[in-house]
């Protein structure tokens, strides 16, 4: 039962992502800014930091799997989110062994990996021809609002899940 709980949470986030976009008041959407929810990535980072051991890959595997589902359902192009999320999560996986597990570190890692993921997304969409924004436009219109809105999401879910993920991890270890 325990092992299903992470994918179930991610699946709920996957669905909520599309619905919150519809719920935002149209005055905000009309501002020309792009608010992209990367909740799957943020939650996968939490899994990587607080649930994974040094040699387990639950965060990366879940993140990659749900990035693929995300693209299958919401976009026409496959593989781009997959690559961006995989690179960002692997970076977190490499960095976490040098850092403590606390809120500030989580905050910084989430911010950095959001920026990395967004740049990979933009670069690939630009190469493929899906967008034709300039780099400065991309940074002011998409990168900053997106990072801010996802940090807001982190502030909401961190108190709920950080402790809980560690408890689940201990229970998981006891079972083994």
């Amino acid at each position: 039962m325990r092992s299903f709980i992470l994918p179930v949470i991610l699946f709920i986030l996957l669905i909520l992502e599309s619905i919150t976009i519809n719920l935002l008041p149209s005055s905000i959407l009309a501002l020309d800014l792009y608010y992209i929810p990367h909740w799957l990535l943020v939650f996968s980072i939490l899994i990587t930091i607080y649930y994974d051991e040094l040699h387990s890959y639950y965060g990366i595997l879940n993140g990659v799997l749900f990035a693929f589902l995300f693209e299958l359902i919401y976009t026409d192009l496959l593989g781009i989110y997959l690559l961006a999320y995989a690179v960002a999560l692997y970076m977190v996986h490499l960095l976490k062994r040098f850092l403590h597990k606390n809120f500030i570190v989580t905050f910084l890692l989430v911010t950095v990996s959001l920026i990395v993921a967004e740049f990979i997304l933009f670069a690939l969409y630009f190469i493929v021809g899906q967008v034709d924004l300039t780099l400065t436009d991309f940074i002011s219109l998409r990168l900053i609002p997106t990072v801010l809105i996802n940090i807001l999401f982190l502030l909401i879910i961190y108190p709920i899940f950080a402790k809980r993920l560690m408890i689940w991890k201990e229970k998981h270890e006891q079972l083994q």
């Binding site: 599309s18 976009i21 919401y74 976009t75 026409d76 899906q130 967008v131």
Partner: peptide
């Protein structure tokens, strides 16, 4: 009835 909008706004898609 619309049930969702693509969260990736580079794609203007609804479902």
């Amino acid at each position: 009835t619309v049930i969702s909008r693509s969260p990736e706004q580079f794609f203007d898609q609804i479902k």
